[in-house]
């Protein structure tokens, strides 16, 4: 698995992930919006998946639309709970203004296990998303005029420790397979997708809060034309949580390592040429 963050200069945060033959680029754009009236103190987050025709010719035209919809739906559901991603950190003025994160997911190459790869890339991109500080605000009648800081380093990072990772489990025969390849996906009639919250400790080493070390399910969904017995379903969920935990730890370590390299200016950028 290859992961590189901060690859797109015009995005607030970005990440590119290559998992075997699956290639995904995620860019996070930030914009200012008015919060929803029923949630005045929280921001907004929105996912867009674009299946480019580069990946497979099937995606040409509107071919990939259904797949793209199902992935973005899954992500939206996984990020819904405040335990997974706290939208309150995106608030600027309660009831007046908030940040809206547009997360654009570009699928460059499709080699199986898209959901998992997308969730990993999104978490990595959010981890290095920078939101500028608000320097001053002018109240003009009911309107607010914001003055943002121009300095790109004068910005805050998001707290994404608990952001969920999706794990796909393909049922082949009697067993459930984690991280399926495209061939394995073709073999199975049903797959289960489990979204599991991350652990803050892996992302913020000096975080000492003892709570929230427990992994929780944020979303569960099924995909494919088959069905399963409930016992298999229970086992698969447990298996998915175990897999997600180790995946989360590995992602956290990799991201921290890269950040340290960034600070020391030692990082060598690979970009898309490999």
């Amino acid at each position: 698995m290859e992961l590189e963050t901060d690859v797109v200069s015009h995005a607030s945060g970005s990440a590119r992930l290559r998992l075997a033959n699956t290639d995904i680029l995620v860019g996070v754009k930030t914009e200012i919006d008015i919060p929803k009236p029923d949630k005045p103190d929280s921001g907004k987050i929105e996912f867009f998946v674009d299946c480019s025709a580069n990946a497979t010719p099937e995606f040409e035209g509107r071919g990939g639309e259904q797949l793209a919809n199902s992935i973005s739906n899954m992500m939206q559901k996984a990020y819904h709970s405040a335990e997974a991603f706290n939208l309150k950190q995106l608030c600027i003025f309660e009831g007046k203004q908030c940040w809206k994160l547009y997360i654009d997911i570009l699928i460059l190459e499709c080699g199986g296990n898209l959901c998992d790869a997308v969730s990993l890339a999104v978490k990595a991109a959010l981890f290095n998303t920078r939101i500028p500080f608000v320097k001053a605000a002018l109240m003009d009648g009911g309107n607010i005029d914001l003055q943002l800081s121009d300095d790109p380093f004068d910005s805050k990072l998001l707290d994404v420790g608990t952001a969920p990772l999706l794990v796909t489990l393909c049922k082949i025969g009697d067993k459930c397979v984690v991280d399926p390849s495209a061939e394995e996906e073709n073999c199975s009639v049903i797959s289960l997708i489990v979204g599991v919250t991350g652990n803050k400790r892996h992302y913020y080493p000096n975080h000492t809060d003892k709570q929230c070390t427990e992994s929780k399910c944020t979303t569960i969904g099924m995909n494919g034309p088959g069905s399963v017995v409930s016992k298999t379903l229970k086992d698969a969920i447990k298996q998915g949580i175990v897999a997600a935990k180790s995946l989360d730890e590995a992602l956290g370590q990799a991201l921290l390592k890269e950040r340290q390299q960034n600070i020391g200016m030692k990082k060598h950028s690979y970009g898309f040429l490999k």
Binding site: K77, L192, K216, C217, T218, T219, M222, V229, S230, L233
Partner: peptide, 13 residues
């Protein structure tokens, strides 16, 4: 057989 299972929110196993 379980044909569909949809969960949203946050809960433990």
């Amino acid at each position: 057989q379980v044909s569909d299972f949809v969960q949203i929110g946050s809960m433990d196993i």
